[in-house]
Simulated scan of single mutants.
Amino acid sequence: MESVKTIRAVERAFEVLQALQHTPQGATLVELQAATGLSGPTLLRLLKTLIGAKAVRRSTTDQRYRTSVQLHALGRGLSPVERLADLAAPWLDSLCRQVEWPSDLAVHTGDEDFMRVLESSLRQSRFYVRRAPGRVRVNLLGSAAGRAYLAALQDERRDGLIQAARAGDDIHNTKIAHTEDLATRLQQVRERGYALRHPLYRGGSFEAKPRDDALQAMAVPVVHAGWVFGALNINWNRKAMTEREAVRRHLVALQAAAAGIAAAAAQQELHEELFRCGQAERCDWRT
């Protein structure tokens, strides 16, 4: 796909829409020129096209340009979790450019005993990691993402999910749930601010036999103002670097990306919609 050229006019149109999105009070032509760097004639042609497509309107009261109700309606047609994926994608791309290893945004729904990969930079990474692409199910108690998410939850909710995982069919969850160190290790996650895989978890698909995938992962919860939306991780081959090296090199970038995703979701007021869908929870995480 790298050899396929982009359409510059479409890119410029999105630059205009993004500029208008950041000016809910509307923008004049001069203000849009300053925000986008586009020339007056180019900007006028783009605005005329966008108005014709009913993506932009020009107010008859103050002559300012604004995004249209129809454009916003298209966004509202997406489910809350798909909107979260859309907001997260640029952050995952940016994180992958910084650390090179792939990352996943994993989310949890209701009382499920697994996380689900919602968005991933697996295909963008120049490094190969042994994992199936797509929205795979991820172990809750053993994976870094699952442990980061659990550590962020309020005690009663976390205990309930652990009990549900203990009673489930996933062999990974069952094995880890019966260890005596799970509560201690989750407390360690809260103290240090990130999660690694549980030592007993070396990979393997949900509800499938264990297999060593040669990977390690580090994850942080995606939290904002008392809400947790999921967890963001970095995956790497264990032989490539130690856990300590990964923390030293990449933890700050991982935390920044997670904070950016959470802030973007909160700005769109997604937390309440995700909560109603069982895809966001109240949390006690301290950033």
Rank of each mutant, 00 (worst) to 15 (best):
G134W: 09
V136G: 06
D104C: 07
L87F: 06
Q124S: 11
S103K: 02
Q154W: 03
A164N: 11
R97K: 14
G168H: 14
D93R: 11
A132N: 12
D155T: 10
L87T: 02
S143E: 04
I162P: 10
A152M: 06
D111N: 13
A106Q: 04
L141V: 09
Q124D: 10
L92A: 09
N139F: 00
A85N: 08
F114M: 02
G146Q: 07
V129W: 02
R126N: 10
A144Q: 04
T109N: 04
L141K: 10
G134I: 05
L150N: 03
V107D: 01
A151G: 08
G146A: 12
R147A: 08
P80V: 09
L92N: 01
R135D: 12
R166S: 13
A151L: 12
R137P: 00
A132F: 03
L95Q: 09
C96I: 04
F114Y: 15
P80Q: 09
M115T: 04
L92Q: 03
L118R: 11
R147S: 12
Q98A: 14
D169E: 15
A88V: 02
Q154N: 12
Q124N: 11
R123H: 11
E156I: 15
E82C: 11
W91I: 00
A106H: 00
D169Y: 11
L140S: 04
G134A: 10
A152Y: 01
S94Q: 15
V107K: 01
R147V: 12
A148I: 09
Q98E: 15
D113T: 15
R76M: 13
Q163M: 11
V136K: 10
D159E: 15
W91C: 13
V138S: 02
R126F: 06
G75Y: 13
E156P: 04
D104E: 06
G146I: 03
I162D: 06
A145S: 14
L105E: 05
D104H: 13
D159H: 13
R76P: 07
E82V: 10
C96G: 01
V138K: 01
M115S: 10
N139C: 14
R158N: 07
V129M: 03
I162V: 15
T109V: 05
S121E: 02
R76C: 13
R130Y: 06
G77F: 13
A106M: 07
V129L: 06
D86L: 10
S143Y: 04
